[in-house]
Nucleic acid binder design. Structure first.
Lengths: 164, 164
DNA sequence: GCACTCCGTTTGCAATTGCTAGCACTCGGA
DNA sequence: TCCGAGTGCTAGCAATTGCAAACGGAGTGC
């Protein structure tokens, strides 16, 4: 992948600014930075801090993330390819919580694997073919979770998952 | 208060580092920054550039975006959790397993949220276990998991948090 | 020609980042 | 006891950021 060279962020900003048809000074004022500095940024002579970058993004009315990606400050929006990577990347979890989730996930994977082998041996129907294969309900987990996390077991699940 | 004050990013980094049980010097080495500087960042004496922030995020194995949000460099428009997306996309899981993982994940998230609102200082709302500063180990979960999944409880998690 | 306004740029300078070297402290072993 | 390895922190410095002031050029009106 092309290295995010320092100049590219400047070119990108200048490009966006010109597309918006505003002058350097206007953008500088809107972003709250000095015009000389913005000029130097656009020409790749200076490497702006994230704070300045953020202000410029606001002045340009574009997403900060796009600018950070251009600046090479965010790995090009890595898709959450697998569960473990996503868990690892989730900064809202504590290390221990991460480990618990990963443990459970891996045990699930092992279970599926075992079933898969069984299937090939005994030609057993897959578990999703019928609901009669019901394993114990998640309540067991949530019960075990209780000392650990304040979980709304099955009582009032009024907390919806959506957010914002 | 609700504003992302400058010091909070340092507290957040220190918190994540301590939860990961690595020393300041270890994280500094992993992130490629000097230990004194990381120390100052954690104490809120310095405002790290986005580049440094990015390296620290890598050292902590968390997403750069989460760190930028903490630093107030990205509007907290939190997209739906990547973890849930990844779980939903995992074809190896049964629907029930998916639901269990999502339930646990969300309960963790709620717990963190509650802690955060309660006080950003100590992260031990309940359950004082005495001299041993270890909260209950994941074994509890895995024990509860036993009837459900064929889990290798003693099996160490092969994913180690350190890496050469 | 002259004055005025806008454009982007160059020139110094204070403030800050981020580093190396070194300090003080704790723990375990000879 | 001292020694070595580990922890985090302070002091001082080079390099960089980000700014105010000033510059040359283009356009407009008198």
């Amino acid at each position: 992948m092309a290295l995010p060279k320092v100049g590219s962020i400047g070119e990108y900003i200048r490009d966006q600014r010109q597309q918006a048809k505003i002058s350097l000074r206007q953008l500088a004022a809107a972003a709250g930075v000095s015009n000389p500095y913005l000029s130097q940024i656009e020409r790749g002579l200076r490497k702006p801090s994230a704070e300045i970058l953020n202000q410029i993004a606001k002045g340009l009315r574009i997403s900060s993330q796009a600018l950070y990606v251009q600046a090479g400050l965010i790995e090009d929006r890595e898709p959450p390819s697998d569960v473990i990577t996503a868990i690892r990347a989730d900064a809202h979890l504590s290390e221990r919580q991460r480990q618990v989730l990963i443990d459970i996930y891996e045990s699930f994977r092992k279970e599926s694997q075992a079933e898969d082998e069984q299937t090939s041996q005994n030609a057993r129907p897959r578990h999703d073919s019928g609901p009669d294969d019901e394993p114990p309900l998640p309540e067991e987990f949530l019960a075990a979770l209780e000392p650990y996390a304040a979980t709304s077991r099955n009582g009032d699940v009024t907390q919806e998952t959506k957010e914002g």
